[in-house]
């Protein structure tokens, strides 16, 4: 069922073009009157204080690391899932199921470990 990717490319070009045109139209149609208070950071009416680019909570890094770990393990499940029916039809179903059960089991142990260590808590 392979079809040409032409329509996909056309869609990408049209979507990109549309985005660019809308943004440029806004620049053409809108006024430009910078005033002192517009040039300030928005902080609900208070005087802006300090810089926004400060250190932030380590928790966010932890979530990113967990994402990398688990998402890569999930990616290994994708090809298995799409081919599982074929393996069942070929009589290899039980073998493939046990293999993946072991893999998911290791994944679950990893999740349990992270949970136990408190990496999922958000103080």
């Amino acid at each position: 069922m392979n079809e040409s990717y032409v329509s996909l490319l056309v869609l990408a070009a049209v979507a990109l073009g549309l985005g660019t045109v809308i943004l440029m139209l806004n620049g053409l149609l809108g006024p430009s009157k910078p005033t002192a208070s517009k040039l300030d950071t928005f902080e609900t009416g208070n005087e802006p204080e300090g810089d926004a680019r400060q250190r932030f909570s380590i928790r966010f890094y932890l979530v990113a690391i967990l994402f990398i770990l688990f998402d890569i393990e999930v990616v290994f499940l994708f090809p298995w899932a799409v081919l599982f029916k074929d393996y069942v039809a070929a009589g290899l179903g039980t073998f493939m199921f046990v293999e993946m059960a072991v893999f998911v089991g290791i994944l679950a142990i990893g999740l349990a470990y992270v949970w136990r260590k408190g990496a999922l808590e958000w103080d």
């Binding site: 928790r59 979530v63 990113a64 967990l66 994402f67 998402d71 999930v74």
Partner: peptide
């Protein structure tokens, strides 16, 4: 970032 990354994992799953 935290929300989209976390929920993406099991969206695919």
């Amino acid at each position: 970032a935290a929300q989209l990354l976390s929920y993406e994992v099991f969206m695919g799953l």
